[in-house]
Design a protein around this nucleic acid. Structure first.
Lengths: 188, 188, 188, 188
DNA sequence: TATGAATGAGTCTTCATTCAT
DNA sequence: CATGAATGAAGACTCATTCAT
């Protein structure tokens, strides 16, 4: 079962299942049952397993889809955005949207999901690195800050925003601190 | 079943179960089975449920115990520590130890565990606030930084350190950024 | 869906499915999935069910085909073979080939497949009876041995050869005993 | 869960489950569901899995129990029986009872159940070998007949008796032939 | 009180069969 | 006619929780 089935109805169902799964897992965690996903998608459970032979496959498909979408958006920022602010805008936006992407945030946060391994993840990561490089070049971010710790902080805040339910205000205050830490300090 | 059963053997069992549960849940996540906890504690499963009528109760008891222990340590810092550094030392230490306190970190991180509600948690929180206040007074932390965002960042980093397996180096680099953000910047 | 569909392509498909099914069920037992058969035949699963409305029908069709082939071979022996040896040669050969006819052996061995009922089976049986009669007339087999017990022993050894994986040597030794029991003993 | 649980109720249940399983698998084949076994035993399905963590374990337990019982009976024959007839009596009896031991017959017949491996099976086999040796020494069975082919014929006939439903008459006739093949022929 | 046996709802997954494309 | 997507009834197995010993 390829990601893009040939038949229209199959393609439609695949999408419906993915949507439903994203929603269900977002609302009740990845431990929600496949049965519930099927119900939410309005299909039989067999259909879910036909498209995603394993629950893990379903989860991974959600991650891939979301990561690809995210990557596209970041790429746009890399090309179009103001180097001095794009990185911070992206970081802020990502945290703000984290709660609608619980699944991906949770799986990304787990050491198992090696950012190195899967292609979409590698791409996502490298796109962020570009954004970061531009910010560094523009003098908006300290030169001694590496991509690894930035990603760690990004995932860390996304995860917490999701699991602890940070409101917009709290998001702003925590990110404010981190951003200050990332910026070049005016030398005295 | 009160926290301190009357009979000595019961009290002993309660402690053993708590120890075993902390260990098991730490090693295999909170999804480890109650049966496994019983086995690790060397008691029957009935005994576990007699002391903790629900798996949730057991989990919460671990949190309470760990939080109380933590609180005591923080209190010591409040009284004895150097106001200018104690706060940062505590933060660093907490993250470093997070991976041996998976259960508490995970449950604290979840919105369900309202930091307001339970007494031990309220106490823990207020002790940290004292530490923070001292750091502020000592000029080590900006005045406009509130306890809420500091706690959020603390839990956020603990959570990520645990789930993503931050090594010592990465811990240092991420916390370095956050600490820089917390410090008073030398006015130009 | 008659055994000989009108259209050429349908007839071709029927044959391909039968071949594939024989192979698959032989290799993995009758519990292999119909889907696997379809894949091996290179047709859609719907096509399999169009030709054989039920998995049971498919199985039975294999039996019929194989039995008819066998019958033809036995008939040749009846006409051409040396009456004194043809029966034993047939018996030996049948056991030797049993492992490439798992499906038929298994189904024939089951009481469900009443040897009386289906025409091809009745024919097969009666052909064997002729072979046996000739052997009896030639003095190679005792007169008091009936067809029923010979068939029983034949199926019994085929079944065991398949399920227990008798090697050539073991086949020879077991059949040697049975053949000795079937032969007329030299009166002392 | 040992074969002999400590508590009386557990021991009772284990036995009930084993009995029920033997009956159910005997009647409907080893593919009958564990649920059905539980129902027949009058216990919850969890209880079945507590005693036999896997369906395979349950099946194996039945085999072990039946094989041990059989072995004891054969041992009695070895000590007490008339060497000249005991072996044939045993063979006849075993086939006659085969239909009440479908499970064991089926599993024994499958190459997977290596007669070499499990202790009870090895014991069973070696006991039969003793019986055979005595028959040979008593001049009732040909010296050039090995244990391997005798076992093969035994399992073969048991299997067929079960699966094809041989009646008493047919059993007698088939075994008659095999026994004749095993006996020493009067030299002319 | 401690024990561990019993329970059964719930989980993932497979597969024969039907039906829209 | 052929295709393969959809279906849902099982099946094996797990686990929190209850209860007899």
């Amino acid at each position: 079962m390829p990601a893009q089935p040939a038949r229209a109805d199959a393609r439609r169902n695949r999408a419906r299942i993915l949507d439903a799964a994203a929603e269900v897992f977002n609302a009740r965690g990845t431990e929600a049952s496949t049965q519930d996903v099927a119900r939410a998608a309005g299909v039989g459970i067999g259909t879910v397993f036909r498209h995603f032979p394993t629950k893990g496959d379903l989860l991974r498909a959600i991650v891939v889809r979301d990561v690809e979408e995210l990557t596209a958006q970041i790429e746009a920022l890399v090309t179009d955005g103001d180097p001095a602010t794009a990185f911070f805008a992206f970081f802020t936006d990502m945290v703000a949207r984290a709660s609608s992407m619980r699944t991906i945030v949770r799986l990304l946060g787990e050491s198992g999901a090696d950012l190195q391994a899967d292609k979409p993840l590698r791409l996502w990561r490298s796109t962020i690195e570009q954004l970061l490089a531009k910010a560094r070049d523009a003098g908006a971010v300290r030169r001694d800050v590496g991509a690894e710790e930035v990603l760690a902080l990004l995932l860390s805040t996304c995860q917490a925003a999701v699991s602890a339910g940070w409101d917009a205000d709290l998001q702003q205050r925590t990110l404010g601190i981190i951003f200050d830490g990332l910026r070049i300090r005016p030398s005295p």
